[in-house]
Simulated scan of single mutants.
Amino acid sequence: MTLDLRIFTEPQQGATYDDQLAVAQTTEQLGFSAFFRSDHYLAMGGDGLPGPTDAWTTLAGLARDTSTVRLGTLVSSATFRHPGVLAIQVAQVDQMSGGRVELGLGTGWYQAEHSAYGIPFPDKRFGLLEEQLAIITGLWETPVGEKFSFAGEHYQLTDSPALPKPTQPKIPVLVGGGGPRRTPALAARYGAEYNQAFPEIDTIGARVKVIEKALSDVGRGPESMVQSVALVAAVGQDEAEFTRRAAAIGREPGELREHGIAGTVGEVVDRLKALEADGIQRVYLQILDLADLDHLDLIAREVRPQLG
Score class of each variant (00 low, 15 high):
Q196W: 02
E102C: 09
D94I: 08
H82D: 15
T2E: 09
V208A: 10
W56F: 14
Q89S: 13
V101F: 03
S67A: 15
R271W: 04
L129R: 07
A187I: 09
Y190E: 04
F80A: 03
P83D: 15
Y194V: 03
H259M: 15
G178I: 06
F148K: 13
L272K: 06
D202V: 00
F8M: 12
L42V: 06
L49P: 00
P184N: 11
A63N: 04
F80L: 15
P143K: 08
P305H: 00
K124D: 14
W56M: 12
P184Y: 04
T183C: 05
P253M: 01
L307K: 08
T79S: 08
K147N: 11
L105T: 05
L59W: 07
H295V: 02
R245I: 05
R304S: 04
V303A: 08
T158K: 13
E28V: 07
E193N: 11
Y110Q: 14
T16V: 03
A34C: 03
L307G: 05
Q196K: 02
Y194P: 03
I7R: 01
L3Y: 02
G179Y: 01
T26E: 11
G191I: 02
L296V: 05
R181C: 05
V75L: 11
G106N: 10
R257K: 12
P199V: 08
Q29Y: 00
L128R: 12
D18T: 08
A214L: 12
D94P: 07
V210D: 13
G176S: 09
Q95F: 00
S77W: 01
D294N: 10
G177W: 11
Q281M: 06
E141I: 02
G260E: 12
P180H: 09
F198T: 14
E153D: 12
S149Q: 05
F36K: 01
T158M: 13
R37W: 01
F36G: 10
D289G: 00
A63F: 06
L105H: 04
A43V: 15
T57Q: 13
G236L: 06
P52K: 13
D54F: 08
A233H: 05
A43K: 03
K209R: 15
Q286D: 13
E258R: 14
V173A: 04
G219K: 09
S224K: 01
A234T: 12
Q286H: 00
Q20E: 12
T142D: 04
T79I: 14
V268Y: 04
M44L: 15
H114F: 07
A277C: 12
A274W: 15
K273N: 14
Y155G: 01
L128T: 05
W56D: 15
A262E: 10
L290E: 05
E131N: 08
V85N: 10
P172A: 10
G108Q: 02
A116R: 10
D18E: 15
S115L: 12
S228F: 03
P11D: 11
A240W: 03
V229T: 10
L59D: 09
